[in-house]
Design a protein around this nucleic acid. Sequence first.
DNA 1: AATAATTTGACAAAAATTTGACAATTATAT
DNA 2: ATATAATTGTCAAATTTTTGTCAAATTATT
Lengths: 225, 225
Amino acid sequence: MRYKILIIDDEEMITELISSHLKDCGYDTLIANDSGMAMEQLKYNPNLILLDINMPGTNGLELCRNIRNHVSCPIIFLTARVTEQDKINGFGFGGDDYITKPFSLKELTARIAAHLRRDERNIEHNSIFTFSDGLIVNLSKRSIFYNDKEIIFSKKEFDLIELLIKNIGQVFDKERIYELVWGYDASGDSNTVKEHIRKIRTKFKEITDKEYIETIWGVGYRWKN
Amino acid sequence: MRYKILIIDDEEMITELISSHLKDCGYDTLIANDSGMAMEQLKYNPNLILLDINMPGTNGLELCRNIRNHVSCPIIFLTARVTEQDKINGFGFGGDDYITKPFSLKELTARIAAHLRRDERNIEHNSIFTFSDGLIVNLSKRSIFYNDKEIIFSKKEFDLIELLIKNIGQVFDKERIYELVWGYDASGDSNTVKEHIRKIRTKFKEITDKEYIETIWGVGYRWKN
DNA sequence: AATAATTTGACAAAAATTTGACAATTATAT
DNA sequence: ATATAATTGTCAAATTTTTGTCAAATTATT
């Protein structure tokens, strides 16, 4: 799997420079030159974020806190500030690391690699899930087969399945599912989630009796173990 | 939960100094002054390791690799070396961060906190309780297994179990349980708690004869030790 | 414009929770 | 030891909450 790295800095020169170097290193990149763009880009689920803490007009630390509310990936601060107090501030706002400008691209990529490696130890980046009954879910191809018969799911349906399957056994309540699958301000309806779960179940039911999505009453849903 | 931090450095002065400071910060500490001790201490499952990379007689990077084979917790290098190549080497050997001496205790603790916080986002800390008779309670997945057989509990039932299990051995009277599980305005009934305890016991009884929730007469209930 | 996907709301169904009456048990006082 | 009071256990019914279903309305895609 290719990692996506979101680079947030107001100077396009810098974002471009870092971006091109990271691409050379085999990473996918996303770029944001202001905080609005940054929040936008989050929907692509970056695996790591580089954040310039000194962007004019926005408070980088505030931005960090906002970002942290939506993603759990590592956040590395890039900054010209050098005082110790700043370092500590950075960590307090949900950052995971801190690199002081000027830094070498070599050190940057080394730190990025370390963080991603660390993440990999924790998360399974596996994208093909094979189940004993003949169900095969390929997340990167977004296909689902039951014994050579393909079941077609719509985008949202698949996103929901993906969430549950990436976290087999873990229970998600409807609000959380809405947040994670639909987007951020989950003022949205839990009804929507309910209905999508139903659609998914209906599609599976046409092929097999096995029930994959389990309801934990009063709590939420989970992919059965 | 208190975090355990293993400090590895050949100079006792330094290990002591760092240790006492970390204790002040509310961490538990383990100390090792050579690589043998270090490997020994691993059995206490530290949550984070500080490793001096320049210990005489041992190769710190080799040691790191060895340690990494046994634990997955974050490893922070402490070192006097300053060249960039060294930094990259460090990451290559399974380290997660790198602090160059001399460093301030403030920065050290900030980095430690950041790593532990990050870990907490990824791993379910302290949320799995395993009992000798085969009972496994996973608080984050909200699942309870008795020897591979799952017992399904409703939300309130599970919340109540969670309270007792997080405080094994401690007695809670019904009013306190009601407060803690249901919410604060405990105008509510102690009858409710009683009934829920009964339901929980019934569910366990279908699987095993062991009694987990004990009644302390005139006082309350507790999870048996 | 036609088709598919998604959202929404109303209602039915299911499950969880609460409640109250009473039985059983334990502690306390006589 | 026995009676009495206090506390806990049990059960079934009533209530509340949550989830499932369906059809229609809206939105997005072709």
